[in-house]
Design a protein around this nucleic acid. Structure first.
Lengths: 196, 196, 196, 196
DNA sequence: GATGAATGAGGTTTCATTCAT
DNA sequence: CATGAATGAAACCTCATTCAT
């Protein structure tokens, strides 16, 4: 039996993990996602490039970690106040806030964009972000439907009707996703009167 | 009588445009979007790299043309049979067909992915695909709402509730988008009974 | 008998021959020989590039004409005052003057440099510059030797002992070729006392 | 005991230096100096172009190294047998041998030609070939003059009278430089009877 | 584990050269 | 003859990736 005395929260990682993620984040903020290279990250973090490659297979993977620590963990979970409609509204409005922040938007579009042609990154993305969030959300929605707080409908579809438009605007149409639009979306999907 | 509206000395594209788009398409089919480079396109099409760069600013721009000619023009317009509900259902089902085709999916995710970090490509994409389609669709939807054939709702929102989920699945969640799912989506959004 | 009514001095050439040579000369003066391209010459002279290529096979050939008209014809012939020693001294000193002029030096090193790897240019150079000058000079030297005004020695060697050092300094060693050095050279070769 | 004066991590050249110089030399022999490009050298040596550019600023610089290793080091030094007149004669005759070898001639005219419009190359050429040879030669000549073995004359001029004509013929007049001509040159400059 | 030194694929550009009018 | 438009060889460079220590 292997003795894994590593702290459970620190997966694995180089000594300078924080310096590296910090460097990547700063550079992205300063120059934009596309302009950041493994090279510049290594220089800024004062590590050799092989160190980067030992721990992350690609620039996208580095930024996936940045994304997780700086954006997703603090901001993307469905809140739980007891009022599911209110929670869903807050959650969708949260995307408007998120997308309104240039840095978060750069990280999101950068990593999502890279994942389109990088199967490994896509997998990491789904396992570490998508799956955990989705599971919890569907659970909450199902329960609320049983309680009669949400319309009876395939919970997968219900979640997707809410979550798709913001992503569509971010990744496809480029239109901005505002609180107002979030509200009409939630109203339309949950069947509440738009003017109420 | 030949219509030669070209002014003399005004050519408006590379001699080998078709060979280039053909080469790009073939290579994408053979090796996947990510593996194709401007270099390999040039070699396959038997042109110099400068010719590519003279006419297209990036690999993404080449594939945008491939996409337009091979995928969008033949397959992405909202049909018009007179029955708007039927048309919308066909249209959304069309995305399922489209995404089911590996080549089309590669082109779509490749170009969309690149557009996330390439503002110029994003603009081209919106002006040449998004805008023309969207304008027509909203028009059709508004007219049908006036005629009482579609629920009263912001037509922009209505269109987006239908169009977002397929793109979300393609670009974000990675789940497959089937005819069955397309149908429940259309039913849910247009308020028709799922079993009807 | 063919009627060649062309003026004997204007070989053949495009209408804009002078504008082209002028442009080439100016650009060389402004930016240095290496920086001038057929492209910039064409632009400055306001002609199409094919016009250049119709009349000159290469940039070196254009500058060969510039060289002939601007440098060689005015400045490189052995003068004839009746005093051969004086004439040879003036001639060799003339190279010092020539090499002292940056523009002339650029033209000379540029064309000579190009001729090292361009056999066609080398041939033109020899037929149009070297041969005519050399023939006259050897003639003069031989006559002077008969008259006892120059040391008895192979006239070819005598000419070469005088003419080689300036070119050696220009093309090989890079050292400057001055009037003083020209004088000691002439003194040494013609056997006159250096201090006389 | 191995002398490994290299500090660790300090490599001072490309791994494939020899392969590169070898490739350049072969290509020059096969196709002529002008036809060789950095591209073809890279392909033949099986290295990337950046490797070439990292270590040599230009094609001329690569060939300068070829020249040094294959031509100059084996063949261009003033020999030292104790008899200075004999040594100088051998030395000048050596140029005839050198220029008689097509490959050596291509390397020499190629590099010298390029140096005419490439100041950096010209500097390298002077520092790595010219200067070392010249210094030794002038030294030898001065010493021999003191010993009365050579005519009293500025040693710089004496050396140049001997060395210039071969270069003049190689680079300017294109005439061939033979042993016979080398001999008359040495005889004329050193004042020995031509028939002795 | 970490790093400095190399490496090479491929992007991008310049400019000589050629077509088509 | 002349030209605007197009072409491609090859230069040059950035940066992901890999050695060798």
């Amino acid at each position: 039996m292997t003795d894994r005395t590593q702290s459970p929260h620190k997966r694995q990682g180089p000594r300078s993990r924080d310096a590296i993620l910090q460097a990547a984040s700063e550079l992205c903020r300063e120059q934009g996602y596309a302009a950041v290279t493994m090279e510049t990250i290594a220089v800024r973090a004062k590590v050799g490039k092989p160190t980067l490659y030992r721990w992350w297979p690609s620039k996208g993977a580095v930024f996936l970690d940045v994304l997780l620590e700086q954006v997703v963990e603090p901001a993307v979970e469905l809140p739980d106040t007891g009022d599911i409609v209110h929670d869903l509204r807050s959650w969708i409005r949260g995307f408007a806030d998120l997308f309104d922040d240039l840095h978060a938007r750069q990280l999101l579009t950068g990593v999502l964009g890279a994942a389109q042609t990088d199967a490994e990154l896509a997998t990491m993305l789904r396992e570490r972000i998508q799956r955990p969030l989705q599971a919890g959300n569907r659970q909450r929605i199902s329960a609320a439907q049983v309680a009669g707080d949400l319309p009876a409908m395939d919970p997968v579809l219900l979640e997707e009707l809410l979550i798709s438009p913001p992503w569509y605007r971010l990744l496809v149409s480029g239109e901005s996703f505002t609180h107002a639009y979030a509200d009409s979306l939630v109203d339309a999907v949950l069947g509440h009167p738009q003017g109420a």
